[in-house]
Amino acid sequence: MTSAAAENTRATETEDGAERKIVAFFCRECAYAAADAAGNARVSLPTTIRSVLVPCTGRVSPLHLLKALADGADGVYVAGCLEGQCHYREGNLHALDRIEFARALLESVGVEPERVQMFTMSAADSPKFVAAARKMHETISSLPQLERR
């Protein structure tokens, strides 16, 4: 196994050994383009990330975030364009506010807010996309699995 892969697997060995599930909403104009670029560059990424394409991060509502957690995800993150670069002018700004609101909601019921995060990047910046994916993976792996009632 190459060193990068080793580094990935080491990261997924959580204390309880169970594989985490992370749902990721990628905006079509920037994040998903950066994801494709990372793919073409054959960058090795953790398998916990489940990508969902949306036209713009502005499309993601608190319902999507909480439902993802409720239905088995241990973490959710949204990746969109840099501030001021949004293809639809301000979709990413709406997403930033909704993520902040969702994190406040989680905190009020005792769930770790780091389970929901947002990252911004430009379409050509695949390194930033990779860093975001790995950071999210590391954060969620360090948290216990999300119990559900």
């Binding site: 749902v23 489940r50 969902v52 949306v54 036209p55 713009c56 502005g58 499309r59 993601v60 509502s61 319902l63 999507h64 439902k67 993802a68 239905d71 995800a73 293809h87 639809y88 301000e90 979709g91 709406h94 909704r98």
Partner: peptide, 27 residues
């Protein structure tokens, strides 16, 4: 872009190809 769909309090608004059902199905 779908900003209005995510914000619509009564759920009347939807987006062609990216309705809540379609997105939640993948999630």
């Amino acid at each position: 872009c779908g900003i209005c769909v995510a914000e619509c309090p009564s759920g009347a608004m939807t987006l062609g190809g990216f309705s809540d059902e379609e997105i939640l199905a993948e999630v």
